[in-house]
Design a binder for these strands. Structure first.
Lengths: 360, 360
DNA sequence: CTGAAAGCGCTAACAA
DNA sequence: TTGTTAGCGCTTTCAG
């Protein structure tokens, strides 16, 4: 219908006074300008070698001049590849919707970088599993994403496992459980928990409390590992449930300390943020750390090195983990079948314990 | 060609033993099963009222049974709407690629929530402007995103301004400068800086240092506001450049303190993370806070309330800011032309200063 | 209320 | 090396 107006440089509506250049939005527009067919333009822009170098350069020049960019939607549809990876953070174990665990946001940063390096884009989604039943299936089934990275298992182990049965390109950050189906990257939480408690005992603590939220798989594993170590050493382990959201955490810790401070000399906090708040409340109460109570955290976030005294903690290599997740996903996208990666935790001794390094 | 095999339930390849149900991937497959045309299926799935309620229910049932989901790529292409918002964090002022300012990741969380509530998806991209020349244009021009949220201006004010000239659906977190073109949401940094310094002076400090990275627009504004307050009170303001990346920050602060500690009694750190590290190093050196040196931060991150002594700081309402950004973007997507939003900073007095509240 | 038909903008055979 | 053609899977007129 109005193709003939395409060539005309003048604009009769008189709106745009400046440079009435014909807007070149489609590959066909560009083809017309270059005097070639759309197919050739497509090949040129894809830097295909099946096109004359000279024409390619010419087309590229025109494209740049009009700063033309391919319509990704169309391209992706046709090629049946989206180049998009979905990252989803399930918030099942925290009612508070707005919690932002610095560990996860950190991990996400590394994931984003690794994906970008490999030419993929990242679609981020935070979901409250309770509200949306089939949160994973809904993300996957639409054909929008080529693969999925799940950041944290929350309390959704079974749901993830179910999806993994017939969906390959998925990698999960979390805890590995023997015989599981989905490909997971994470630290050996059980072992980390064991090390934390072992270190406390070897540093002289005898009446030790665990603080964390055992509804989340990873925390549960840390608790279980700590329990094993306690048993082995013949000491008890008091379980004091504590959530991650700051406001809840505060009052819970306060209550825990009110009730149990007198009878404990060691605390294993299942996350550094918890440890940091515990430390603060201990100091506020005039308790000596590590003099009266020794304290071990988990994660080795930057903040662990920022408190006074510095926090003894169990390190997870978050950067390595993020890159590992992406690499495994890429392999899976490629048809390979990858094993889970369980990283060894490392004990970092700072000043919140009396400094006995873990004897191997 | 092979349409006739569609109806057949048996699979001659003998691969899948379990439930050889015909895979229904396209709207056309579904249409066949339901005995209607693709168009009707499309309408039914879109819950259009131009379709018989009974047929709609039937189609929905079949869809659920085969858990069919629309191919988003195709749908988006056809409707010329992607439902995707791009969020981009420019990392221009930090060489270190892997910095993850907790303030921004926090903000991002709120943005993600607000977008989800409005049915949009979020595509996240972190860019190093130096490497990619036209980072904003490249994100916008592809038709992949319907709008863009820029999280932090970094040192890219001009680039953003350039794009804003002819691209409407963009909202930026950052500093407002009179007469600027792009729509920005942020706190009045100049004023915040003023308040911080004013508070230090009113609390008795006279020889005050500023620590921050003035290459970033927002920090520069905080510095400038602090300078104005200093001038008004007739005190000096020492500028001690300090970066955000932890390793650099550490040595810089250490050096600053080596050189200037003797001659200062107040520090305004342009971000809470800087303040927190300053505090740590001060305590380590046995300096009394606020006794010998008073300290004010900026942001009011959770960590500001976690240090001992607690950090006096300038609060930005990050949750409100995130929601505001999304709301403005939605309005712009709707054709409205929105003004920038400049929020008032709030002084939060804790223990790192001697506690004089800002006289109004 | 439903079906037929025409594309969204691009890519990939297949010919020339 | 280039042009032509046939769709990717969906939505949306336009008839009926």
């Amino acid at each position: 219908m109005d193709q003939e107006s395409a060539e005309s440089q003048q604009n009769s509506d008189g709106q745009e006074a400046s440079i009435p250049k014909f807007a070149v939005r489609t590959i066909t527009d560009l083809a017309k300008l270059a005097g070639v067919s759309p197919g050739t333009v497509s090949r040129a822009l894809a830097k295909s070698d099946k096109v004359n170098a000279r024409t390619r350069d010419r087309i590229e020049a025109i494209a740049k001049e009009h700063n033309f960019q391919l319509n990704q939607m169309a391209s992706k549809l046709r090629r049946r590849q989206t180049g998009i990876i979905g990252a989803v953070i399930p918030l099942g174990h925290e009612r508070s919707q707005h919690i932002s665990d610095p560990f996860f946001t950190n991990l996400l940063g590394h994931i984003a970088d690794a994906l970008t390096e490999n030419g993929y884009d990242l679609m981020l989604r935070r979901v409250i599993p309770r509200r949306e039943e089939d949160w994973l299936g809904k993300l996957i089934g639409t054909g929008l994403v080529e693969g999925v990275l799940v950041v944290g298992q929350s309390d959704q182990f079974n749901q993830i496992e179910r999806i993994a049965q017939d969906y390959r390109p998925m990698v999960v950050w979390g805890n590995y459980r023997a015989g599981q189906r989905h490909c997971v990257v994470g630290v050996n939480n059980e072992r980390g928990g064991f090390m934390a408690l072992d270190h406390l005992v070897k540093s002289g603590a005898r009446r030790i409390a665990f603080m964390g939220d055992s509804h989340a798989v990873e925390f549960a594993a840390r608790h279980s590992g700590a329990g094993a170590a306690a048993k082995q050493h013949g000491v008890g382990l008091l379980n004091l449930p504590t959530h991650l959201s700051l406001t809840r955490m505060r009052e819970e810790i306060s209550r825990h300390l009110d009730q149990h401070l007198a009878s404990i000399d060691g605390i294993f906090a299942a996350a550094d943020q918890i440890a940091s708040e515990v430390l603060r409340q201990l100091l506020q109460r005039g308790v000596q750390v590590p003099g009266q109570v020794q304290l071990v955290g988990f994660d080795d976030l930057p903040l662990a090195d920022q408190t006074t005294p510095g926090l003894t903690t169990i390190r997870q290599n978050i950067e390595y983990g993020g890159h590992q997740m992406v690499e495994l996903l890429l392999r899976r996208l490629n048809g390979e079948d990858t094993e889970s990666v369980v990283m060894d935790p490392v004990l970092i001794v700072r000043e919140s314990t009396r400094g006995q390094t873990l004897s191997k």
